[in-house]
C-alpha cells in the first residue's frame, strides 16, 4: 500500500491511506450512480454523495499535514453543496409540477 503517513488517535495508529481509500470508494459509487440512474432526483442525491466523499478526502489530508485549510475548504464545500441542493431541488420541483419525468434524457431542451 502506498504510504501516506500515519497519525495517532489516542493509543491507536491510523493510516491516512484508509481514509483516502474510503473517500475514493464513495466517490466512485457516486459517479457510477450519476451515470447510471435515470431519475433526476436520484442523480442529485448521488452528486451529494460525491461531494461528501471529497470532503472526507480534504479533511483526511488536513489531519495528515496538520494544515487547517483542508477543513476550512471542506466547510466551504458544504456551504456550496447546500446552496446547490436548494436551487437544484427548486428547479426539479418546478419541472415535476408540469410533467412526470421518467428519464433525465427527457430534459434536453437546453441543447445548442
Amino acid at each position: 500500500m502506498p504510504d501516506y503517513g500515519q497519525f495517532h488517535v489516542g493509543t491507536s495508529t491510523l493510516s491516512t491511506t484508509w481514509f483516502l481509500g474510503l473517500g475514493a470508494i464513495l466517490f466512485g459509487l457516486g459517479a457510477i450512480g450519476v451515470v447510471i440512474r435515470r431519475n433526476p432526483l436520484v442523480i442529485l442525491i448521488c452528486i451529494e454523495l460525491m461531494l461528501n466523499a471529497a470532503n472526507l478526502t480534504l479533511v483526511a489530508f488536513s489531519r495528515q499535514l496538520l494544515n487547517l485549510e483542508g477543513q476550512l475548504f471542506a466547510l466551504m464545500t458544504m456551504t456550496v453543496a447546500a446552496a446547490e441542493a436548494v436551487v437544484g431541488l427548486a428547479i426539479l420541483v418546478d419541472i415535476f409540477h408540469r410533467r412526470d419525468v421518467e428519464d433525465v434524457d427527457e430534459l434536453h431542451e437546453l441543447k445548442g
Binding site: V34, I43, V104, L107, H108, L110, G112
Partner: peptide, 16 residues
C-alpha cells in the same frame, strides 16, 4: 453546437 446535445448523462460522462 453539436456538443450541446442537451443530454445530461453525456455531459456527466464528459465531466468524469
Amino acid at each position: 453546437a453539436l456538443a450541446q446535445s442537451g443530454y445530461f448523462r453525456t455531459y456527466a460522462l464528459i465531466f468524469l
